[in-house]
Computed example of a mutant assay.
Amino acid sequence: MELSPVTAQTTDASTGVVDTAQSGSKPGRPAESVRCRTNSRHGLTDLSRRSYPPVESVCRALEILNAVNKLRIASINGLYEETKFPKSTIVRMLETLMSEGYVARDNMCGGYRVTSRVRELSSGYEGISRIIEVARPLAIDLTRRTKWPVAIGVMDGDEIAIQFWTGAISPWNTDSILGLRPDMEHSAMGRTYLAFCPAAERERHLARFRADPERNFDDSAERRFRLLLEQVRSEGYAQRDPRTWPYRRTTFCMPIREGDTVHAMISTSYFTTAIPKHKLAEQIIEPLRCTTTKIEEAFAFMNSGGDLVDHSGDEVEFGF
């Protein structure tokens, strides 16, 4: 698997069709025989592979909408320069978008503009952070190599929410943990976040622990926990408290950071009887650390204006 800022090229094993897409241009369109199990438990991360050829009119309408949004105030000539579509097609697409309420003719400014209704197109996207998009193919690759399930959690208010999980492609699959909220004190993700988040944020959470009568977070427990967080910061990872989940399974977790900001936490879970302690660094910790570093680099690249393309083409359960 490779992430590229410029091009993506995929080849269908059954047809030999090569599909190439470049940043800023429309993706190549594979032959009709390319298959995608869109209605099954698993889907494809290679979004250029489709079940059927795309509907040209829909593609053109979306490109016109994108061009109007880009140009702010778009004239017919401006849209022609941007899309190279025939002007008659541009007019028909604009009229269609106007009838649906996504575009309006602005006679004062002499062109077309998008309306506030375009915001509805992103309303279902609010719960999925950008970091999950970047981390997804790399987390999949980690599970492909190590076979162990990987989870990614982000902060949701004062709690962690697991928003992505690769258990569907792990041979050691268990019940789905998507949507679960790990405990901040005892989970590997909670400990990771508290160890690496800004000090003021950490103190706020510890104050909540002290005020919670069910936690029994007295002075002695707080001192031990602070020492634990120092150890997590020193080692770069946290492990789940085995007392809260006394099974043969445990979890290691690391932060996905940008400067002092912790964007997410990524963890690997495994059976303690499957890996000797002297093999943990080689089989669990270092692969997780390498993946975390790649995610941070990819996220920084995308924030700088780059365009990441997923080359993996692996099948995974859609976790969001």
Rank of each mutant, 00 (worst) to 15 (best):
E2W: 03
L3F: 03
Q9D: 06
Q9L: 08
T10F: 07
V17E: 12
D19I: 12
G24L: 07
G24M: 05
G28N: 10
A31N: 14
A31D: 10
R49C: 13
R49N: 12
R49T: 14
S57C: 05
E63W: 09
A67T: 15
K70H: 10
L79M: 13
Y80F: 09
P86N: 11
I90T: 06
V91D: 02
L94Y: 01
S99F: 11
D106R: 11
Y112A: 05
R113V: 13
V118L: 05
L121W: 08
G124Q: 13
G127E: 12
I128P: 01
E133G: 12
P137R: 05
R144G: 03
T146V: 07
G153M: 12
V154A: 03
T166H: 04
G167M: 08
F196N: 01
C197N: 01
E203C: 00
D212E: 12
P213Q: 06
P213K: 05
L228I: 07
S234P: 03
P242M: 05
R243Y: 09
T244D: 12
P246W: 12
P255Y: 01
I256C: 00
V262L: 02
V262P: 00
T268E: 03
T273V: 15
C290N: 12
F299R: 04
S304H: 11
G306L: 06
L308D: 00
G313M: 07
E315M: 09
E317A: 07
G319L: 11
